[in-house]
């Protein structure tokens, strides 16, 4: 059975699109046929991060409106032939997304793909609600700061009450926490919330901590998902996330401050 994953957050700019591209690539690299859909109508971003922006002919809205078939609109990734991208429209208006239309497209995708990753727009409006409505699993992307945690909490409330699973009284959406842009040094200085602080409020199953890393920006500039940069910490952290999601046990990394460790080693003062 195909699984529909929504990558969501409430707050904007926390790393949803970065995460969607990384985990979709990670799942495909591990042999699962995966589609990733950009729900951020008007802002088109995912195709840039995956480096396929020049190959976009048709988009999600064209498929919903019956102006193109799904196969015409899906773009096969250049690095992995099990990964397909369904880009968002840059020109259409957000109202073009309808629950019925989205449902039909997802229905068709579930027949062909093993995983369908939905990159949600920010906010708690229609676009975000549609991205999560059909989901089986939710990756809640949160930054270690209070406004992001609050918004994630709000999103969790919507996940548990406004999804198809909630409406049908089915088993609830499985919710996972992804703590991104984590900087242990700043946590130590008290400038950022710690993992414990975040979990005190959210208490979710932790799928992974993605450290703040320059490699994320260089990867997105190059149009290659950061998970393919195996040397980078962010890339390794995303690979761990995919492995844990697929059921592997992996200890959490990138929680502690390296600086702190050195200081402890040499007995330096803080």
């Amino acid at each position: 059975m195909a699984r529909i994953i929504v990558v969501t957050s409430g707050k904007g700019g926390v790393g949803k699109t970065t995460t969607s591209a990384a985990i979709a690539m990670g799942l495909a690299k591990r042999g699962h046929k995966t589609a990733v859909i950009d729900f951020d109508v008007g802002l088109r971003n995912l195709d840039l991060i995956l480096g396929c922006e020049r190959r976009v002919v048709y988009d999600f809205i064209n498929v919903i409106n019956g102006e193109a078939t799904l196969n015409q609109a899906l773009i096969r990734d250049k690095n992995c032939n099990l990964l397909y991208i369904l880009p968002a429209s840059q020109t259409r208006d957000k109202d073009a997304l309808t629950q019925e239309g989205v449902g039909k497209v997802l229905d068709e995708l579930t027949r062909e793909f093993q995983y369908i990753v939905c990159d949600s727009p920010a906010g708690i409006e229609k676009g975000a609600n549609l991205a999560l409505y059909f989901a089986d699993d939710a990756f809640v992307v949160t930054n270690p700061e209070i406004s992001s945690v609050r918004d994630s909490d709000r999103m969790l409330g919507i996940l548990s009450s406004k999804s198809r699973r909630a409406e049908r009284n089915e088993e609830p959406i499985k919710e996972y926490l992804l703590l991104t842009r984590y900087d242990p040094d700043r946590v130590k200085l008290g400038e950022m919330l710690s993992l414990d602080d975040v979990q005190e409020i959210l208490s979710l199953q932790l799928l992974g901590i993605i450290p703040e890393s320059k490699s994320v920006l260089s990867a997105s500039n190059a149009g290659i998902p950061v998970i393919l940069d195996e040397k980078s910490e962010a890339g390794q952290a995303y690979a761990d996330v995919v492995a844990r999601y697929l059921g592997e046990e992996r200890p959490h990394r990138f929680i502690d401050s390296k600086q702190g460790f050195l200081r402890r080693l040499f007995g330096g003062k803080k």
Binding site: R150, D153, R154, L156, G157, I158, S160, S161, I201, S203
Partner: peptide, 21 residues
Amino acid sequence: RSGQRIYASSDLIITSQVSAG
């Protein structure tokens, strides 16, 4: 979670956390 509301015409027993909001 934040944004959710629960009303009980009886006693209300909650075993999980009640978020701000």
